[in-house]
Deep mutational scan, measured.
Amino acid sequence: MEQGTVKWFNAEKGSGFIERENGDDVFVHFSAIQGDGFKSLDEGQAVTFDVEEGQRGPQAANVQKA
Rank of each mutant, 00 (worst) to 15 (best):
M1V: 12
M1T: 13
M1C: 12
M1W: 09
M1E: 09
E2L: 14
E2C: 14
Q3K: 15
G4D: 01
G4T: 00
G4S: 01
G4A: 01
T5Y: 13
V6N: 04
V6G: 04
V6S: 01
V6H: 03
K7W: 00
K7S: 03
K7R: 09
W8H: 05
W8N: 06
W8F: 08
F9A: 04
N10V: 02
N10E: 07
A11V: 13
A11E: 09
A11K: 15
A11Y: 11
E12S: 13
K13N: 10
S15N: 10
S15L: 15
S15K: 10
S15I: 15
S15F: 15
G16I: 02
F17E: 04
F17M: 10
I18W: 01
E19G: 10
R20L: 06
E21I: 11
N22S: 11
G23D: 07
G23Y: 05
G23L: 06
G23A: 09
D24Q: 12
D24P: 15
D24W: 08
D24T: 14
D25V: 12
V26D: 01
V26A: 00
F27H: 03
F27N: 03
V28G: 04
V28C: 07
V28L: 08
H29N: 04
H29C: 08
F30P: 06
F30N: 05
F30Y: 11
F30S: 08
S31G: 08
S31N: 07
S31H: 07
A32L: 00
A32W: 01
I33S: 04
Q34E: 10
G35K: 03
G35N: 06
D36N: 11
D36L: 12
F38H: 08
F38K: 07
S40Y: 13
S40C: 15
S40T: 15
L41V: 03
L41E: 03
L41P: 00
L41W: 03
L41S: 02
E43T: 14
G44V: 01
G44M: 02
G44D: 03
Q45E: 13
Q45G: 05
A46K: 14
A46H: 14
V47K: 01
V47S: 02
V47A: 02
T48R: 10
T48I: 12
F49R: 02
F49W: 00
F49Q: 02
D50W: 14
D50H: 13
V51R: 00
E52R: 11
E52G: 07
E52K: 11
E52N: 08
E53Y: 14
E53C: 14
G54N: 08
G54T: 14
G54I: 04
G54Q: 06
Q55A: 13
R56Q: 10
R56F: 15
G57W: 08
P58G: 04
P58Q: 09
Q59E: 08
A60G: 02
A60M: 00
A60F: 02
A61K: 14
N62G: 04
V63L: 05
V63H: 03
Q64D: 05
Q64C: 07
Q64K: 13
Q64P: 02
K65L: 13
A66V: 15
A66S: 12
A66F: 10
